[in-house]
Design a protein around this nucleic acid. Structure first.
Lengths: 161, 161
DNA sequence: AGCTACTTCTTGAAGCTTCAATAAACTGAC
DNA sequence: GTCAGTTTATTGAAGCTTCAAGAAGTAGCT
């Protein structure tokens, strides 16, 4: 059967460019944060997410959903960050299966200390190079892609897969 | 000092959306390929890159540069794929330090077998959801970001850092 | 030739992620 | 209340990536 639809040339070019950009960017940010904060980008994202939340705490599953990672990955990550003294687990009052992750004061300080460098890196890599219009386009395109992936009906398992 | 430039609200929104999209997409494609081809996305990208090259072979460093990964990572990956019989190392005639990675027939067949499923996944996740204009925008934005990262002068080391 | 500096690639260990299996608790239907 | 089915979170092993170090070859300079 030859009904296979391959990518057009423009699509191929876009896909290659996108792959390269994301590969380089991840690598770059991981290095920046590993150097300045001693943790990979995703771990920083966890602390950062918690720092913006009322009570600086969140249920495990909620944190996993917001950051788009699996519960297992989060569980390992939290253990590591707990070892650093930046996070703490508390049992959830309303659901005895649940755990609440709490950002410690040390963890909050760490975010405050490292956020400027991280923001600089992100801006230098992305937003300083894009027009306002491109930034808006990037946001919209990203939303479209993200929406297609956990989709309104990505259903039978909690939220991913 | 309060000269710190944080992200504007629009930039923050774009950054969050972008992060979520790329996190979900990587995860999705890794799963798709792990299921259908028994390898992560980056490994598939290596085979695929080789399959499009004259002679289906390339120097290690060249392959690392094209796929934007470190030599070390490539070295481990090639060892694994060599174990699968999809790749083979040959010593380079012109430079006795060098290695040439060659895609085996089995490796080529594997690409041919799994390419349609992978392309479908990429199209379903991205290009079927974007207008032609958005595809073009994504390509341009990606190029801008990628260019900033290995930059024309990202110099003293081969290509990264 | 000999020397220094650099490039190519590999290695092993440590750290991170995935996957499948598990324990424990909740839910709803009976 | 109880049972089956679901949800929450964790665990350990296997696989992948990063990092620093190192072996081997090249290049240029004297």
């Amino acid at each position: 059967m030859n009904s296979m639809r391959w990518l057009t040339e423009d699509e191929q070019a876009a896909w290659r460019a996108f792959l390269q950009a994301t590969t380089l960017l991840e690598d770059h940010l991981d290095r920046q944060l590993q150097r300045d904060a001693g943790m990979p980008h995703m771990y920083y994202a966890l602390l950062s997410t918690l720092s913006e939340t009322p009570g600086r705490s969140m249920r495990m599953t909620e944190l996993a959903e917001r950051t788009k990672i699996t519960r297992s990955r989060l569980s390992h990550a939290v253990s590591r960050l707990e070892g650093n003294g930046w996070l703490r687990r508390e049992s959830c009052p309303s659901d005895r299966r649940g755990q609440v992750v709490v950002l410690t004061d040390a963890g909050y300080d760490e975010v405050v200390r490292t956020a400027p460098g991280h923001v600089d890196a992100v801006r230098a890599a992305i937003f300083d190079r894009l027009t306002d219009d491109q930034t808006a386009q990037l946001a919209e395109i990203s939303r479209i892609i993200a929406d297609g992936l956990h989709g309104p009906d990505g259903a039978d398992v909690p939220w991913l897969r």
